[in-house]
Design a protein around this nucleic acid. Structure first.
Lengths: 128, 128
DNA sequence: ATAAGGGTTCCAGTCACAGGAAGGTCAAGG
DNA sequence: CCTTGACCTTCCTGTGACTGGAACCCTTAT
């Protein structure tokens, strides 16, 4: 399989696939002409990575998860710990964004939004 | 005022303050020895920037907001538009994170998290 | 004279790619 | 056989908003 077919089937850009090889997440073979040849296993790993990334896992988390996936003697506790830590970071991020949203929603509602210069948003930023 | 005092009073790291000068958000004067001298106006702007950044506005949004703040003939509609667009991006981000959180919460709950290799999290990543 | 604690600039690194240039390869059509 | 166009390759740069560190200057106190 060439890279563009893999890109289609995994829904990952070719650039991303090359990058994943670059940082050692996959190791596709090469033809004599230098082209990458992807095996079903490579395809599978890339799909795995795509889904892990879609869940927001960092590349380093993905590396860990992939290693655990390939290790038949893994402990599910190790996987769960990675997922729980990631989940915590997500929840923190959500809380932070919600706080911003609440403040902004309030400010936007207060602002007339017309041609006059008077603005509660700027007022708030200027003297918090 | 020297940079470290400004850093304390605005709760911004000196590095950040220098960076803001670098990208033209502030223009503190210089002493003969090359040290920056910050005026009350600089201090005020930095505090403004700190609060705008805390609400998640991008640096470019901050530049726009600061310009609007300094323009006495501004229309509050312009401010409101920037804020509303930012608010929308935040809400999109929250929705995206919540979706990740829901999936992850479910997976984490399903996973035994013990010494055995069987793991629903990996199973999900492997076959979506 | 020296040491501590300011200040300065400049360079590299972060994260996860994306864009683009320069050039090699391959299959089809004239 | 030649060309065209669609692939493929590597390499370099840029993104956002800083942070860390090196190398060096300035000021004040001992």
């Amino acid at each position: 399989m060439n890279i563009s077919e893999v890109a289609q089937r995994t829904d990952l850009p070719p650039k991303t696939i090359r990058y994943y090889e670059d940082i050692g997440l996959i190791r596709p073979e090469r033809r004599e002409n230098g082209y990458r040849v992807f095996s079903e296993s490579d395809l599978h790993k890339l799909a795995f990575l795509g889904r892990a990334r879609a869940l927001g896992f960092s590349i380093e988390d993905c590396r860990t998860l992939l290693a655990l996936y390939e290790d038949e003697t893994r402990a599910s506790g190790d996987v769960k710990r990675v997922a729980r830590e990631h989940l915590e970071r997500i929840e923190d991020k959500i809380a932070q964004l919600q706080s911003m949203r609440d403040t902004l929603t309030h400010l936007v509602r207060e602002c007339a939004g017309d041609a006059r210069p008077d603005c509660p948003i700027l007022k708030d930023l200027a003297k918090g």
